[in-house]
Write a protein that binds this DNA or RNA. Structure first.
Lengths: 212, 212
DNA sequence: TTGACTACCTGAGGCTGCCTCCGGTTCACT
DNA sequence: AGTGAACCGGAGGCAGCCTCAGGTAGTCAA
């Protein structure tokens, strides 16, 4: 949906920039041809495995599926978190871009809600993702932290705009908003995409439960 | 808080009844003296371990802390789920009892909200509990299923009462309500009890996000 | 009190997955 | 072609899960 599959060209375009500006902690795309090849193969295998078995998928299986020894996987992605980060960075970037694109709109409430929907969708890409993202958001020194913080800012901006327009109660903080989004994302991630209530849950949240 | 610690007498009073009526799947309290002793010791160790390390705590550690070999633990609790079920049954019972107690009140909305608070608190007793409860709720043949279903019913009754009084929108289903509670419980369980926003989140949920 | 029955206990052992380390390989650059 | 660094492979140590065969000791009846 957001380019999480078959994003080879896109990786090539964005990873170099990201690697430069973001942090030394994030695994960088290797330069040597064989290294690049393996890096990409591992990433592709990881995306599939995470989608199928969640964030706890066996790393040895991923390495095998990528046709690579376990040591090679660890060379490129020293921790499970770095691998998760790399396979979900695109989605986070999309989220930030989307926020930038609609900021300043004439319908700040609609813009916020639409963004919330997309956020929940991405947070629940696979089982276990939300947990990792929450940790990343508040814990510096975590691979996804920079990107998460950026996305947090994007959401906060949309929220502020909606509040300034008087559409959202003024006492709602960004942290509270994200807590609620995380909760809904967790539900979606847990119950699976078959029974996907997330849009409805967001509506309930926004509209309120109590009768008018 | 709900009698989840030091509940020896209480266990003695309730477990026998529960074992009779609930299911053959749930580990029954053994009759022989040494068996009872070990069963209780394992349960106590498990409560501590789950509180400290979450539902994924090492079963071998629990056995060791209980002064028992690993095989003994598995004899009494054939799966991790049965152990979790046994250590959280009290809380679920409390929840059902609480609902029965306030049903028929003159303030159905207040009753519902108070119950929701207690539910969220119990669901997030330790990390990983909500996930297990959600699975139990919809998956028969799971140790906690019977108790979960009963609790589901209790919540649904309170919801219906509040809806009949016109206090809660009529189109809200019990499943949706529980989804939202689960989500909030997950947030609480994940962020830890230090920063406990759950009451506030419930208020936001009930009051609605949008400005009046 | 004694004996037998069997519920109960033990812990070695096979399995999976995590992660490290170092000898060997191969790419890239001159 | 030669060299150095980047890269790869996979054995191996560790932790946790779970099972099973053999031993132990409560319980109950005589």
């Amino acid at each position: 949906m957001t380019g999480s599959t078959d994003s080879t060209t896109r990786d090539a375009a964005t990873d170099d920039d990201a690697a430069k500006e973001v942090a030394p902690l994030i695994a960088q795309r290797p330069k040597r041809a064989d290294g690049r090849r393996n890096y990409d193969a591992i990433l592709a295998a990881a995306r599939t495995a995470f989608a199928e078995h969640g964030a706890g998928a066996s790393l040895e299986d991923i390495a095998a599926k990528a046709g690579v020894a376990i040591g090679t996987l660890y060379r490129h992605f020293p921790t499970r978190a770095t691998l998760v980060e790399a396979s979900t960075r695109n989605g986070l970037e999309d989220l930030v871009a989307h926020a930038k694109h609609v900021s300043g709109t004439e319908e700040p409430l609609a813009a916020l809600v639409a963004w919330m929907r997309q956020a929940v969708l991405h947070f629940s890409t696979f089982r276990g993702l939300v947990g990792i993202l929450v940790r990343s958001m508040y814990d510096e020194g975590t691979p996804s932290h920079a990107m998460c913080a950026q996305m947090h800012g994007s959401g906060a901006d949309l929220l502020t705009a909606a509040q300034d327009a008087g559409a959202i109660r003024a006492d709602l903080t960004p942290v509270e908003l994200f807590d609620l989004l995380h909760g809904i994302a967790w539900v979606r991630e847990t119950t699976g995409p078959e029974r996907d209530d997330s849009d409805r849950l967001i509506d309930l949240l926004v509209g309120g439960l109590t009768a008018r």
